[in-house]
Simulated assay, not measured.
Amino acid sequence: MSTYKEKLSILSEMIAFAKADQDLKDTEYNFLFGVAVSLGIEKEIFDSLLKKQIKVVIPKTQADRILQFHRLVLLMNVDQEQNQIEISKLHNIGLGMGLPPSAIEQVLMVMHDYPDKIIPPEVLINIFKAHYN
């Protein structure tokens, strides 16, 4: 599992992503706080990350990178709104993590085939597996 610093980085990156459209909606806040709880981050620390971004640490393993990308896809769709800024930012984050561009594109297309654009984890994993083979 990730170190405490890596967990803070995960949240910080997600918060910055949620603020890409200059508006942090209640649904996004609640989703982010749920991730914080699952990572063992206290509410006070989580709320401090809303005010001050910390340096992003790219997850070490490919599995952790794919998991973070999946979290970001879910976050993008939690408010049931997408805009080009979010899509472009998500694409760039994926590239920055070293994920295959073709897999990123496929995920962004396939998510529209699922209710509320919530792509199942096994589908996402299979997309990345196919692009690594």
Rank of each mutant, 00 (worst) to 15 (best):
M1G: 14
S2A: 09
S2P: 13
K5T: 15
K5N: 15
E6D: 11
K7V: 12
E13T: 09
A20G: 13
L24Y: 06
K25Y: 08
D26M: 11
E28D: 05
Y29R: 05
Y29Q: 02
N30H: 14
F33K: 09
F33E: 06
F33A: 02
A36P: 02
A36D: 03
G40K: 06
E42A: 11
E42V: 04
E44K: 12
L50S: 01
K52W: 00
Q53T: 04
K55S: 12
K55A: 11
I58G: 01
T61F: 01
Q62S: 07
A63S: 09
D64E: 14
L67F: 02
Q68Y: 10
Q68N: 10
F69L: 07
R71E: 08
V73W: 00
L74G: 03
L75F: 12
L75S: 13
L75H: 08
Q84F: 10
Q84K: 14
I85N: 14
E86A: 12
I87H: 12
I93D: 10
M97H: 10
G98A: 05
G98I: 02
P101Y: 13
A103H: 10
Q106I: 12
L108I: 10
V110L: 14
M111R: 15
Y114S: 02
Y114M: 01
P115H: 09
K117G: 04
I119Y: 01
I125R: 04
N126D: 08
I127F: 00
I127E: 00
N133P: 00
